[in-house]
Design a protein around this nucleic acid. Structure first.
Length: 121
DNA sequence: TAGTTGACCCCGC
DNA sequence: CGCGGGGCCAACT
């Protein structure tokens, strides 16, 4: 650090990552969430890419079930980051989530929206 | 320092 | 109904 490190002091960004982890941890077993839903819940609607980027660092966190986070179509787009082509699918099936052709079965019913579940009680 | 990429999503043709 | 482009913000090279 030296002169003008305005972005160096950005706890807001760190909070964003931590916030993503917190929401993912709140996802109940047997349920799945989506990047857009989480991004919108955090107020970053449209920046769903950042959610995936944050989850990329969440892979090292055993408390953050990143396998429960899929895209809007319920497709396991992030499975390629799990090191194994079927790792994410097996993890979901182990939790009771049926996955077929890299896609969550009955995704609409299993979709867990933080803004809806956490706000609308 | 600047350019490119990315676990996405939405709109237009 | 399939394909392409734009937008978003941060990290990597």
């Amino acid at each position: 650090m030296s002169k003008k490190e305005q972005k160096a002091s950005a706890p807001k960004l760190e909070h964003f990552f931590e916030d993503v982890y917190a929401v993912v941890r709140l996802i109940p077993p047997g349920r799945v969430s989506s990047y857009g839903a989480i991004a919108r819940y955090l107020g970053r609607s449209g920046s769903a890419r950042m959610v995936g980027w944050a989850l990329n660092g969440a892979l090292q966190l055993p408390d953050v079930p990143a396998q429960r986070v899929v895209n809007r179509q319920g497709r396991l787009t992030g499975k390629i980051h799990f090191g194994s082509p079927t790792r994410m699918q097996e993890l979901l099936e182990a939790e009771g989530v049926a996955v077929q052709d890299d896609q969550v079965v009955n995704f609409a019913a299993l979709h867990w929206d933080p803004e809806q579940e956490l706000s609308a009680e």
